[in-house]
Design a protein around this nucleic acid. Structure first.
Lengths: 75, 75
DNA sequence: ACCAAGTGTATAGTATACTTGACTCCATGA
DNA sequence: TCATGGAGTCAAGTATACTATACACTTGGT
């Protein structure tokens, strides 16, 4: 696996676009704790594929519109 | 997080469509071990979001064409 | 001045993705 | 017949996503 985190996301913007949904409400909607949302939103770590799908699903968006992969140079 | 695995994938088909690429070669291409590919291909567990992106990238396909999310009923 | 809601952070623990090394089985071909 | 390559599996260990509880800071409202 890659050493450098190469994934960004638009969760914060999507929350505000969705009636200013709180981190707490998003967490409940996708079935994780609030600090998991905080960590992901601030790119402390990337979610599992399943959680990524659930978050995208919660916003009614395709996954690749929520999470953006920046391919490393050695590709 | 969900208890039941709700993610399937088309890796096996994609490997064969890609010049019969072996598990070993795919593993090397995305930077993991061969048994990780075996496990994911046979849906023993789902990859991280980053690895999912790398696999899709290796095949030149969008992520959601490689990994398919089946939303649970309680959605 | 106070309080509540929303957000960020810390630490310790659990769950699971991923690694390493070894072994088996099956098919193909020299 | 035996060797080789591709695929599956098992067990023990490491890395990291995620949980639980708790506390600090800011902002808006009363």
């Amino acid at each position: 696996m890659a050493k450098t985190p190469t994934i960004s996301n638009t969760i914060r913007r999507l929350r505000f676009d969705n009636d200013e949904m709180t981190q707490k409400d998003l967490a409940a909607a996708v079935g994780v704790t609030r600090q998991t949302i905080v960590a992901i939103e601030n790119a402390k770590y990337a979610p599992t594929l399943e959680l990524a799908f659930r978050i995208a699903h919660a916003f009614g968006k395709p996954l690749e519109e929520v999470f953006i992969y920046e391919a490393p140079p050695d590709d």
